[in-house]
Design a protein around this nucleic acid. Structure first.
Length: 116
DNA sequence: CGATTGACTTCTC
DNA sequence: CGAGAAGCCAATC
């Protein structure tokens, strides 16, 4: 478990119920604005049974781009989002601008600010 | 240690 | 607006 992973996972846990964020937003909030792919990489290495609301994370277009072994994983994510009141289209797309959540710097007191 | 791989994002055509 | 290519960067091989 690297520090990068811990920071990402903390953001995932900080996503309120019924809200979503993009991979890029998480990357941006941990001072790695160009590391959206790595955020997704971490999610991939996560066991879907883990205690993280990974289903509240999707790309900036609001589309569930999960790969997994089958599209079945995307269907699980769709079901999870709908269970929180988020409408998901049949093509795994949501109105992300309507549900997007924004992180606050003071949400993570354990971490040091980037500036020296 | 160099090459490859992506749950991404953004710019071009 | 849709499809394609490039850029990005940590983790794996």
């Amino acid at each position: 478990m690297t520090e990068f992973q811990q920071k990402v996972l903390r953001r995932v846990q900080a996503i309120p119920r019924g809200r979503v964020v993009s991979y890029g937003q998480i990357a941006e909030s941990i001072a790695r604005p160009r590391s959206a792919r790595q955020v997704g990489w971490i999610m991939r290495s996560l066991e879907l049974k883990a205690d993280y609301p990974w289903w509240r994370v999707l790309n900036t277009k609001g589309v569930i781009t999960i790969k997994g072994n089958l599209i079945n994983d995307a269907k699980i994510q769709k079901a999870m989002l709908e269970s929180e009141g988020i409408k998901v289209s049949s093509d795994f797309t949501i109105e992300i601008e309507k549900y997007r959540h924004h992180f606050s710097p003071d949400q993570f007191p354990d971490e040091e600010p980037e500036m020296a």
